[in-house]
Design a binder for these strands. Structure first.
Length: 307
DNA sequence: AAGCCGGCCAACCGCGTCGTC
DNA sequence: GGACGACGCGGTTGGCCGGCT
């Protein structure tokens, strides 16, 4: 096949990026931004097409990228979301701050390969998460099947009893992508956390679990070697604890929570002047930054607002 | 030690969508 | 309304690297 239409200029370089190219791109983007990707290569002095520059920036160079292995919580989240929305990698990635669709897709594909190779662990055909359009399973696209699948199957891990949400580290996840049918959003870019459950017909799980939340900086920059969330949370006074009664998930893979202090929580969110929140589910004593770090098992989830 | 093989992952490709003229 | 360009997404490729024989 011929070159892509955006890459038909003379002497367009392909293949792996050199450190020098990376440096040029970083320098240009950090000083000028990227209004129009097709203009970036020329202005940045790169022999690449704009598309390649965009990909390199989004998947590798942008400062808020998270690298390194997926945490067990992230794995569960990916599996759960994939069960709900299928191969919509960009959507799944939007729920994992700092992770890219490419990374998640690669992870999933290699994970699936492992699954297929592994004898006796294959889930039943109704739960195979490979090629079917998961959105057609139900009005909300989400059956308990994939939870069974998950229970059997979180590779290398001992079997998880009951459901995903009765596992020791339940997941909490929020749509941070803006308004959805007028449900989310308050008009100033801050998502409403605990909106109404996605619908009467959606799957609902009863949790009755205490979780904790802290605001974090939404504009953190941690540098190129990011394996960490923002230097968190020095002020534990801002922490809020709440009793989550149940959660449901809609066909977009977004979870909605019901909690006892719902009104209070929304007010709290409003008062924090912050669009990024970290959630976890342990309540043993004061937590240090390390304990809340994403590599630890107590991380439940994070809500962030990204451009 | 060398060759082979398979996994991982960065990058590419093609297509769909959206905005603009 | 349609032509065009830019962008975003998902599928696929291919190079690198580590483990195995």
């Amino acid at each position: 096949m011929g070159h892509h239409s955006c890459c038909n200029q003379q002497k367009v370089k392909r293949g792996l990026w050199s450190p020098e190219e990376d440096e040029k791109l970083i320098r240009y983007i950090t000083t000028h931004g990227y209004g129009c990707w097709s203009e970036v290569p020329e202005k940045a002095g790169l022999q690449r097409c704009g598309k390649s520059c965009r990909l390199r920036w989004i998947n590798y160079l942008r400062p808020d990228i998270r690298r390194g292995r997926f945490t067990p919580e992230e794995e569960k989240l990916i599996i759960s979301l994939h069960g709900a929305v299928g191969n919509r990698w960009a959507h799944i990635a939007s729920h994992l701050p700092g992770r890219t669709d490419n990374e998640i897709k690669n992870y999933w594909n290699s994970w699936i390969k492992k699954k297929l190779r592994k004898p006796n662990s294959a889930p039943s055909t109704t739960t195979a998460p490979t090629t079917t359009d998961h959105r057609q399973h139900s009005p909300f696209g989400y059956s308990t099947n994939h939870l069974d699948f998950l229970n059997q199957d979180l590779a290398t891990k001992p079997p998880i009893q009951d459901t995903l949400f009765s596992s020791p580290s339940p997941l909490f996840m929020f749509d941070s992508t803006g308004s959805v049918d007028g449900i989310n959003g308050d008009g100033n870019g801050r998502p409403e956390l605990f909106h109404e459950p996605a619908g009467l017909n959606s799957e609902t799980w009863h949790l009755n679990q205490q979780v904790h939340a802290l605001p974090t900086s939404a504009s953190f920059t941690t540098g190129m070697e990011t394996n960490y969330l923002p230097p968190l949370i020095e002020n534990m006074e801002n922490m809020v604890s709440l009793e989550v009664q149940s959660c449901s998930i809609n066909d977009e893979g977004d979870m909605a929570f019901e909690c006892l202090q719902r009104q209070e929580l929304n007010e709290w969110v409003e008062s924090q002047q912050c669009s990024s929140f970290l959630f976890w589910d342990q309540g043993e004593g004061p937590l240090t930054g390390e304990e809340i770090a994403p590599t630890s098992s107590n991380l439940g989830g994070m809500l962030s607002s990204y451009p």
